[in-house]
Design a protein around this nucleic acid. Structure first.
Lengths: 298, 298
DNA sequence: AACGATGGTTCAGGAACGCTGAACTAATCT
DNA sequence: AGATTAGTTCAGCGTTCCTGAACCATCGTT
């Protein structure tokens, strides 16, 4: 009972390229083929699947409802294929290969700084490529098989094909600018949550921001956001400038002068280690994972 | 950064065909293709991957070490492709489609007999295809996307891409042939475990057999097997014929005359509902799953 | 030892596929 | 209206993949 569905990685590549780039011409350029080839390729894919993936709207093509499911298939299959390609490359080179690690800011600059340094010294032959960014984009890259391991904030809804294991809990504290000595009228006692804010924090969509919004809500504070940045340092500077308050991990934040810790440990975010479930075995990756787990247990 | 690995479902199909059939000629026939095409196809695949998948040994080809990893990829990709093909078919037909359900013997004939009957009456439009067999082969079929849902014995090491949820616990009891009234010298009191056996039970490799072997070991009995069958009814008959003892679920076994329940509830096997993680959504399957879960809770 | 059967490969030739470049259509911008 | 942009269609050509036939090597048989 054969599949009777003849597909090519090429065609799947076309599909996701069209999806990720705003325009087909752009996608074609990214693939290194002419728009003609892309158009014909997608048409051929539609023919083989027996369904329309794109409808015509003016001179633009808009994905149909069916498109989503096929795209899901294409993306997961291509991720697996990239994994295989990577495994083949390392097999052929015979080297221990490279490890592509993704980390959120605090993990790279504080929690696992020493682990990385030690690991680098211990295994100078392993090319370690480190990508720092917000959890969501790291997990996207991981799913796309562009990264091998990711250290990020725990996510409630876990994704298809991604496994997580807990590393450590990272407590977040409420920080306000230190009130000027010759008072603003605000008393010397800590303000009640209802008087907290406004806030500078991570951009919408950030896992940590969701945690913070939730915790502030529960504490009885309003969550009005007046400025955003993915970088903790930038948030700190904004607080120092008096733009607003923030919620950050104290660990690795640097000197606290000019800052008032209004509520330590408002909430903790759990850092987890995420990997792709279907990935082929890789000794270099396993070793790094072991080092990270050991480092977290310290 | 394209995959730079141009593969075809066709080539993967070739690879698994070669793996599942004893000889390449046979595999080629199963694929509906000449041996020549298969040979060239595999050669082309090896060329694209850049590694040898098969070594020559006499006139036979034996898989290399690398072969296993590529096969894993091929099988999981093909499973996903079959899922997509199935989804496409149901989408095109517009019907609610068919549901392919796998069950172990006891689940089909006893625990979920009424659930299936009710579901069939309730949804006569859904073509329900039922496959009964041992857990392991059902899970294999499930992984190959030949089945949509499986009810089987819980397995400790869970497979890649398969999710399980508990349904119910099925207690197993030790059964012996009733001793003839004019005694064999054995006393009327229950024998000690050390005197149990020998056994007729499920074939080696069966999940339930492993459970039984383990439980008997712990109870202090020797586990000498003198006859095997996958069918509970056959095992019961063997006990009645005096071939040996067995361990079976009493539920749904029929009349117990001629049988001696030496130890009820020796151990329980947990029945679980297994599905493929990556499968596209299917309303007909979801409804059946709901019915099974509800039936288990009753 | 010789011979045939078996398992797999190689080598033409031909069909199908996929790409490029150019001509083309249609919506959008100015 | 005219230029521009987005995507398609078409002819032509190189590549891929299949069949059928010839071929090679190994294993069994008598």
């Amino acid at each position: 009972m054969p599949t009777s569905l003849q597909l090519t990685t090429q065609q799947l590549e076309y599909l996701v390229a069209v999806d990720t780039h705003g325009t087909w011409a752009e996608a074609a350029a990214a693939l290194g083929v002419t728009p003609s080839a892309l158009s014909q390729g997608i048409a051929e894919l539609e023919r083989r699947l027996g369904i329309a993936l794109f409808a015509r709207d003016g001179r633009r093509r808009v994905p149909t409802r069916d498109h989503a499911e096929v795209l899901r298939y294409a993306e997961s299959t291509l991720a697996a294929t990239r994994d295989l390609a990577r495994w083949l490359a390392s097999r052929q080179a015979g080297t221990t290969g490279a490890v592509r690690l993704g980390m959120i800011d605090a993990a790279a600059t504080h929690h696992f700084r020493d682990v990385l340094r030690r690991h680098r010294r211990h295994r100078p032959d392993v090319a370690l490529r480190l990508a720092v960014g917000p959890s969501r984009s790291l997990l996207d890259s991981l799913a796309r098989a562009e990264l091998d391991v990711v250290v990020c904030v725990e996510t409630e809804e876990l994704r298809e094909g991604i496994t997580q294991q807990a590393l450590l809990d990272d407590p977040l504290s409420v920080l306000a600018p230190t009130p000027s000595p010759s008072g603003t009228g605000r008393g010397s006692c800590a303000p009640r949550p209802a008087e907290w804010g406004p806030w500078v924090t991570f951009p919408a969509g950030s896992h940590t921001r969701e945690l913070i919004a939730d915790a502030l809500e529960r504490a009885g504070a309003r969550f009005e956001v007046v400025a955003e940045s993915h970088q903790p340092e930038v948030l700190r500077e904004m607080v120092l400038l008096g733009v607003g308050w923030t919620v950050l991990p104290l660990a690795g934040l640097g000197p606290l002068e000019g800052l008032d810790v209004v509520r330590p440990d408002l909430v903790a975010r759990r850092l987890v280690l995420a990997r792709r479930a279907g990935a082929p075995p890789d000794a270099a990756v396993d070793e790094l994972v072991a080092a990270l787990l050991a480092g977290a247990a310290e």
